[in-house]
Nucleic acid binder design. Structure first.
Lengths: 133, 133
DNA sequence: CTGCATGCAAAAACTTTGCACCGCC
DNA sequence: GGCGGTGCAAAGTTTTTGCATGCAG
């Protein structure tokens, strides 16, 4: 049975109000303001738990430590090749790619996980700036 | 300048002949038959290098260590929820999802990385077997 | 010979876990 | 009070790196 804990609640709320997909380390550091005694182990344990019960999402970007997203509903993510930032991305009508993927496949496709790559709005701007020199 | 090395060549060939997307550890263990003195550091260095120059692909599945794919050309991957195996998957006509993703996005989408999840042919079979009991 | 590549081992980076104590139910 | 949660620290896992030596160009 899942028991209430102030720490877990704080972690969940913290993530719900951040849109930059922080790492466990960042969650730990920032949440220390409110809980000076909280331990990194507790942060990892709760992040894993919350991800498992679907209240947050764990993002493995393949670059650096895992990141966490406080928005539980399905959506996509964009990773900037230049600055490494991770942004939420709403893309409609992508469910059909499961069907496409299953066409020549004998197993059963149940879902997919997609990361988009490129230049974030900020870095795209930078590029324009430099190219006008 | 990139200098030839027998170790790197062996790693590349090893991956080219495997279709199970081995981890660095597996590459290391298996390639020791041919190079008893090769070190894990060399394996990691060469895997990173080969991935960077696009001769192999690094797969971060978010579960366990990274895996490596000897097929450099773009294709997709399927990860079995049940047994954890990783299979190659050819899906045509998925490039357009970059356009979809870019529709409400101010940055620039340059590509995407997609993992499909579900039951592999083997595990799907298992399920059928059990359900007939 | 010059400098990238290797082998080795230490260390870094990231995450999990054992254990005694704490606090929700 | 019972049991899941926490803090702490140790350890586990995965990957990177410093350095002396080796080998390709």
């Amino acid at each position: 049975m899942l028991k209430y804990s102030r720490q877990r609640e704080a972690i969940k709320n913290f993530l719900a109000n951040r849109y930059d997909h922080p790492t466990a380390e960042t969650v730990y550091t920032e949440i220390k303001d409110e809980f000076p005694n909280i331990s990194l182990g507790t942060v990892y344990r709760n992040l894993a738990l919350l991800a498992e019960i679907g209240e947050i999402q764990k993002l493995s970007t393949g670059f650096g430590p895992d990141r966490f997203d406080g928005r539980p509903e399905p959506h996509y993510h964009f990773i900037c090749n230049q600055c490494g930032c991770v942004l939420d991305l709403t893309v409609d009508g992508l469910d059909h790619i499961n069907v496409l993927a299953g066409q020549d496949f004998d197993g059963e496709i149940e879902g997919h996980l997609t990361y988009f790559y490129g230049k974030c709005p900020n870095c795209k701007q930078e590029k324009v700036k430099f190219s006008t020199h």
